[in-house]
Design a binder for these strands. Structure first.
Lengths: 244, 244
DNA sequence: GCCATTTTTGACCGTTGGTCAAATTTGTTT
DNA sequence: AAACAAATTTGACCAACGGTCAAAAATGGC
């Protein structure tokens, strides 16, 4: 069969099926963890044969990476939306912290899976295309924060002489990721006496911003109203903003 | 054979062999990741049969958890040593950050493995005794930081009215863990333009302490000399303190 | 040297990630 | 509509590996 008008339709169907597989695999990964399901189960669930799965993904790890990258893309999307919040630089970075809450709600186990994939034996089994995709989405998250920081420094909300923008970005990324991981850990919540893990995530972001000297400092201002605005304008339907 | 004088010796030999297995498994885990080796390889490496391995560990995951808990115990040991550093509260918390550097040097891949183990399908395959061990060591790390914070608040180095001690502990734990993870990630280092990841780990700890309002603030003091003292008195032979 | 008990062993089993030749479907030509 | 060729799908099959357990070996008391 030579190139024909059906080619485009075929490509569309192929892409749709790939979506379906990823969607179903995400459910499995979430509910049962990487070891808790096998490719035969998944083939049955999506109603295709195992061989067909392997036309899309070169290994189980490759598929898991695709699932993770999908989540990471959503994270980047949330970050970019948050970044467009109409407010001061400190309010915009607060919106990023809210995006982290939104993400943690939708993908509580994301970092567990991500860390697993990045350990040597997993990462190497994924295709280089999907590795590249993952790097790209990680880059989007990074740049969104970096941009806000550069603008904050330009506006004078954030000191310029104490650190380079990359250092501040690195600090914020570290604390947001670390907080997500810690907040989702049952034992940690018990020790920390945390009732609402997502409040703690935003709190940690605040503290780091304070440490960077990002004006106005959190204990000099009240962000309750800002939070309500962020939810209303950027994340309507969010469930993580407790108390009216 | 009734209870005899050989019992104690047997127990000692058993424990020694368990150490050997864990030591060898740690090498494998570090070099090849969880999927990169099998129980037959390991049996060969320790010069015992596979059946003998399963007298010590009820599954491969159980063994991996034992390896991780061993690392975590070392982390707790480092924390406790750091906590005894002879200095002000802020210097002692700096010593904890140095302990994190020491730990990151000795166990660069620790959190990758730890996250993997905590995902459902892995954790459930480990014995409850080893799960308990892991929780215990995590608790030691937590309490060490918590204690310094309580003392800092008592001494007036750290505000009492802005947060509860657990909140501060949670913030510091989050940032140290997050920084370790981020600092060990190749792509992240490239984006952040980080030449020495461990300097960034300490820097992030500093920024969080500043955010908590922990006196004396990092940009009001120079901790270069403190670092040198910490290395000399607590971590002799440390390789992560660059520049004289 | 013999026996009872404990300990060690590795052949064996079931599961599962991954492959590929055969079967099926699709689309074009006559 | 029949025949044909290209593309796609399939699931039986294979090898690798985690885990088991009956048999073998080692131990220690008599």
């Amino acid at each position: 069969m030579p190139v024909s008008i059906t080619t485009a339709r075929r490509a569309r169907e192929f892409a749709a099926r790939e979506e379906l597989i990823i969607r179903e695999a995400r459910k499995f990964l979430l509910e049962r963890g990487f070891q808790g399901w096998n490719m035969d189960d998944l083939a049955h669930a999506v109603e295709y044969s195992k061989g067909t799965l392997y036309q899309h993904f070169e290994s189980k790890e490759d598929l898991a990476l695709a699932v993770c990258t999908g989540s990471l893309q959503q994270r980047a999307d949330l970050f970019e939306r948050a970044s467009n919040f109409n407010g001061g630089s400190r309010e915009r970075i607060r919106a990023i912290c809210c995006a982290c809450c939104e993400f943690a709600t939708a993908h509580p186990e994301y970092f567990h899976a991500d860390m697993m994939l990045k350990s040597a034996s997993f990462w190497d089994k994924a295709s280089s295309e999907r590795q590249e995709d993952h790097r790209f989405q990680a880059g989007r998250c990074w740049r969104t924060i970096q941009q806000i920081i550069i603008e904050a420094q330009a506006m004078g909300d954030l000191p310029r002489d104490r650190f380079k923008p990359e250092e501040a970005t690195f600090a914020l990324v570290s604390v947001t990721v670390g907080s997500h991981i810690m907040a989702m850990e049952g034992d940690m919540r018990v020790m920390a006496g945390i009732t609402d893990p997502l409040i703690a995530v935003r709190r940690n972001g605040d503290l780091m911003c304070d440490g960077l000297g990002w004006k106005p400092l959190s204990f000099e201002a009240d962000y309750t109203e800002t939070d309500r605005r962020i939810v209303r304008e950027v994340f309507p339907g969010a469930t993580w903003l407790k108390s009216a």
